[in-house]
């Protein structure tokens, strides 16, 4: 498994990176930490003529507060978030999720933006950003645009990114002090891809209530009716309620897949409502 030949560039500025993408036509690929692109190159599943490494771009590594949002640069690594390097990202959902992504070696290099641009349905950031209702900031030679997460990811490994564009930053809401969240994924073994996952965020101050299923065949799927009911009752729903909600959302899945997903939703909500059951 050796990659087919390619040119490798590591531009110093975002402007240079965007120019390299334009120059490359459709044959240039952006590399963040290389944790998804690397294996694909080695397996020869993708054969770009150029690889444009954006991991060192200072512009993509900033974390800042912008009003009631946080702006996180695309090249921030999972390990930086896990380790609390950025004070604004400490002690919340993001830090908790970051530490559970794959293995530490991967987290050392893998980036938030890279993960979202790759759009693996089982990825942790894909689910988390859907639950937070994040905005994706996209840069190109002609300027910047923003897309909400639910429009950004269109399907498995398919995003709104066009040729010449790269994911520059992610904007997430700053949750209020009364916000509660839960995140549960079921993996056959520690570090592997999730087989079923669920993220839930409730923030009354922002009128935010979301329960989202991940590790599906395509983009994550929200359960708006269940989220509204849970927000209204402020209580743990029954397992029968969860079964109905999951069955309605995933009619094509078999009994085993649905059972796993029900367990994921239940354990996610336990973190909020029945913490003594969560390990």
């Amino acid at each position: 498994m050796k990659a087919a030949s390619f040119d490798y560039q590591r531009p110093a500025t975002l402007k240079d990176a965007l120019r390299a993408l334009v120059d490359g036509g459709g044959a240039a690929k952006v590399m963040g930490g290389g944790q998804s692109l690397g294996p694909m190159l080695n397996l020869r599943l993708t054969r770009p003529k150029q690889v444009v490494d954006v991991s060192a771009l200072a512009e993509l590594r900033q974390v800042a507060a912008e009003g009631d949002q946080l702006r996180i640069g695309a090249a921030v690594t999972h390990a930086e978030i896990e380790d609390g390097v950025h004070p604004l990202l400490r002690d919340g959902l993001l830090q908790s999720v970051a530490g559970g992504i794959a293995y530490r070696a991967i987290r050392n290099r893998g980036t938030l933006g890279g993960s979202l641009a790759h759009a693996d349905p089982a990825a942790d950031w894909v689910l988390t950003m859907a639950a937070l209702g994040a905005q994706i900031e996209i840069a190109s030679a002609t300027g910047m645009r923003r897309v909400p997460m639910e429009r950004f990811m269109q399907g498995a490994y398919t995003t709104d990114l066009a040729d010449g564009e790269l994911l520059a930053a992610v904007l997430v809401p700053r949750l209020g002090p009364a916000a509660r969240w839960g995140y549960f994924k079921f993996c056959r073994k520690t570090g592997e891809f999730a087989e079923a996952s669920c993220a839930a965020v409730f923030d009354p101050s922002r009128k935010l209530a979301r329960i989202v299923l991940g590790a599906l065949d395509g983009a994550p799927q929200a359960l708006p009716a269940l989220a509204a009911q849970v927000a209204r009752d402020a209580a743990m729903p029954s397992r029968d309620t969860l079964r109905s909600a999951v069955a309605a959302a995933l009619p094509a899945k078999d009994a085993v897949d649905r059972k796993l997903m029900v367990a994921a939703v239940e354990r996610c909500l336990h973190q909020i409502f029945v913490p003594e059951l969560s390990t």
């Binding site: 294996p39 397996l43 056959r188 073994k189 520690t190 570090g191 592997e192 891809f193």
Partner: peptide
């Protein structure tokens, strides 16, 4: 055909 699909026990297993 890759370790994404072929599960091996690791230190945690």
């Amino acid at each position: 055909s890759t370790l994404a699909d072929y599960m091996l026990p690791g230190a945690t297993e």
